[in-house]
Design a protein around this nucleic acid. Structure first.
Lengths: 225, 225
DNA sequence: TTCTGTAATGAATGATTGTTCATTTAATTT
DNA sequence: AAATTAAATGAACAATCATTCATTACAGAA
């Protein structure tokens, strides 16, 4: 009868009420099943089972199956947007910041590769406003990397370049870790992948000044962390 | 009653019999619909309509809906495997060959970005033997690029590097053109994208000898084809 | 304990859709 | 023309699931 009342809390993911916690349980279960078996191949019943509840109950916390997908994908993007800045603020040096951002991004992806794939596979089926929100979040994370690059250029460490463009490639290669695993199987470990990509970008972008600056940095304290 | 007889030709895509042509019509219609609306969102009826036939007829040419998906994805990978070598054999110079391979790959992707996305989104739902075949085809195309890089290294133009690793990144960035369009919208044209990526790899990989060699090449005749 | 509102259940519903197959149409042969 | 084979149709079938809702279990208040 009354529509909007029965849905407990429509806040995106925050909150610690019992309602919010139960809701999160459903999202987690759904994420897991969607990631492993695909969205269309997963039934609501299975999600309920995995969350230790009955199928009907899900509809008290979520409008429909699709909303679970939205929430799952948004959680992934949120983890990018949280983890990358957290890594960046630890450093002052522009080059270190860039390196930390790239490394952090790859690590988040590597931590839950299936989740990244989920976003890749299913963003397209979401209704357009939701897609826009997701795109917005992507761009925000990209911006963090862009800023790092811009700072490096301003400091004279990186040569002039289309920043937006370079950062897009960095992000793509980060996602690449997840895309790789099922396309070509496991070839390397994450550390190697991070190092290889960092090397690629730095070698391509450094000015002479940047190169000297960097080798001095490396002698002082090894990168990574 | 008799199963295997009524299916006209189970050959992958070749043949010019009327049967093969009709079969291809279905695959083309399916590819278009799957690409634009998604596999699960497309009904067999729609495919039939688009192909100008009745739903029942499809099953004379194809085992099931899923086989249409297989054929669609395989067609994409086949176009990679055909176009890239075609571009490479036009050149003798190792660096030019690498450049041509990368450019060709990006161009095929850019020509049918939706098709590339199709492969990304739906390979996972295919049965494992089909997935393996697709993976095999991927690797074969990768190998072409790997070979280019190895030749460059042997000639002393590129520095030592993990070849498999570098070629994977090249492929990923090629696919990136398709992945980009719907994630971040259109930022650049393909030509810029090709040039930017080429620049990235060459700057990162060149030895001093390679750099000199390349600038000599560029003065003789501008790259690209 | 009794009452009351909320949480939870899970069988029933209804809509969708891949697939089949009895039937018709067309093409080819005799 | 008649007979035979192949191609094509599309209504009907069967299975699947997302979603609903009548019903039950529960929690706290009076």
């Amino acid at each position: 009868m009354d529509n909007s009342q029965s849905i407990k809390q429509r806040t995106s993911s925050a909150g610690n009420s019992p309602a919010a916690r139960r809701r999160r349980k459903f999202v987690i279960a759904a994420t897991d099943l969607f990631s492993n078996n695909g969205f269309h191949e997963t039934t609501v019943k299975e999600i309920a089972e995995k969350a230790g509840a009955s199928p009907g109950l899900i509809y008290n916390y979520v409008r429909d199956k699709e909303e679970l997908l939205s929430l799952a994908i948004i959680a992934v993007l949120e983890s990018y947007k949280t983890e990358v800045p957290k890594a960046v603020i630890k450093y002052d040096d522009p080059v270190k910041r860039f390196a930390a951002a790239l490394a952090a991004y790859i690590k988040v992806v590597a931590d839950k590769p299936k989740a990244t794939l989920l976003a890749y596979r299913y963003t397209a089926i979401l209704p357009s406003p939701m897609r826009d929100q997701i795109k917005e979040m992507e761009i925000e994370t990209n911006q963090i990397i862009s800023d790092c690059i811009t700072t490096c250029i301003d400091a004279g460490y990186f040569r002039e370049a289309n920043v937006e463009f370079v950062s897009y490639r960095a992000v793509l290669l980060a996602h690449g870790w997840a895309l790789k695993s099922w396309r070509l199987g496991k070839l390397h470990n994450v550390e190697e992948y991070i190092e290889g990509n960092l090397d690629l970008f730095l070698t391509a972008l450094f000015t002479e000044k940047g190169r000297r600056h960097y080798s001095k940095l490396c002698n002082e304290a090894p990168l990574g962390g």
